[in-house]
Nucleic acid binder design. Structure first.
Lengths: 101, 101
DNA sequence: ATTGACTTGTCAAATTTTGACTAAAGTAGA
DNA sequence: TCTACTTTAGTCAAAATTTGACAAGTCAAT
């Protein structure tokens, strides 16, 4: 339920960096980075992008996790959660079949 | 991209109701109902519930569309949109396999 | 006890959402 | 056309949510 945060913490560990170093790099408070990693706060897109840079990973990969966590939050307590994803998928297919708009 | 709104308009038409009548029932301004139907404003859960009642349809059905539209909005402009849904699905599976939390 | 890494709590500021209100635009009948 | 009525568009203040710094706290190692 916090795929992005887990990933960020993994990455940071693998580089042997401290919260404070990551925080300095993305120009936020150390406490905020801690919260992002633990999913207590939602990152902004800009944060995710900066983090992808510092960790030298594909930005899309992190953005995907970032969005997935948000989608998850939206439906996690719903019994219709799976149906929701199905319908959303069909909406996506619909627009991508380039029915304009 | 506005499955709920379209559905609401269909339902209203099928019952031969005016915006003003629906609005009175759910106790909001007529203009708001118009906007909900056209997806210009996001309904609140309570609105969706009330609308399910007035139209005598399964509440879950409308809630599903309501949530799906929100998920769609979140990912519609993302190239990773489909991946996002996949990951979200896996997050869902993970929690439902009752790994606690 | 001190130091350093991380976490937690708080809060004001900033941003976003909300929905009524008003006015405009569209529609149909006389 | 005139008129009555439905629907849509624009505006805006109030309400709700988000944001992130700051300060204080915990914890581990020394």
């Amino acid at each position: 339920m916090n795929y992005l945060g887990n990933k960020l913490r993994e990455l940071r560990a693998s580089k042997g960096l401290l919260l404070r170093q990551v925080a300095a790099y993305i120009e936020v408070d150390t406490a905020l980075v801690s919260k992002l990693e633990r999913g207590e706060r939602k990152a902004k897109r800009g944060h995710v992008e900066a983090l992808a840079k510092i960790f030298k990973v594909n930005e899309k990969e992190l953005i995907t996790l970032w969005l997935a966590d948000q989608v998850f939050d939206l439906v996690k307590d719903e019994e219709v959660a799976n149906d929701v994803l199905k319908v959303a998928e069909s909406e996506l297919k619909y627009v991508k079949s380039s029915a304009k708009e």
